[in-house]
Amino acid sequence: MSTPPTDAALVAAARSGSDAAFARIVDRYQGPIRTFLRRLGPYTSDADDLAQETFLTGWTELRGLREPARLKSWLFSIAWRKAKGEARTMARNRQRDHDWQEIRPDCETPETERAIALHQALAQLPPDQRAAVSLCLGDGWTHADAAGVLDMPLGTVKSHVLRGRTRLVEILGVDS
């Protein structure tokens, strides 16, 4: 079985014009990036639009990527910048957020119940804390890597994760 190409190899191929290579980059990171952005905002469709913009910006700025092996962190940094850019809109839509928290689908499985509960709990955290929690607790990033992506001091990220985790446990009513 052939080993999958490394990020650096895919970046090199995409830089030389291979759409197939860029499509593989999209496939490789669409899941984590969409999940990250969905956890930052209330609307899945908005988050997916933002994720598409993230990849489009990634494609445009691919030549500026200094360390191709750090492709994942770089894409997440773009996603975070875009999410912060949307912050004003999100603030304007705070009422919409509130309405959204009231929405409950007709047909719920334990999975969707848990997902909705998590979204509602995350919505109560400040955006920076939400992002740090999403990366470190949701996606298994180290504090140092998350600090790099979010452009925050390491201590701030650690504090965000600790406080965010405590708050989530409290809101969700699970035993820590």
Partner: peptide
């Protein structure tokens, strides 16, 4: 981690062809 189940339930699909097509 008691939160792990919540985060796992919330994850987007790993690969969505429609999303890839929209990006491309």
């Amino acid at each position: 981690d008691p939160l792990a189940d919540f985060f796992a339930a919330d994850a987007a699909p790993a690969v969505d062809r429609g999303f890839r097509m929209a990006v491309m």
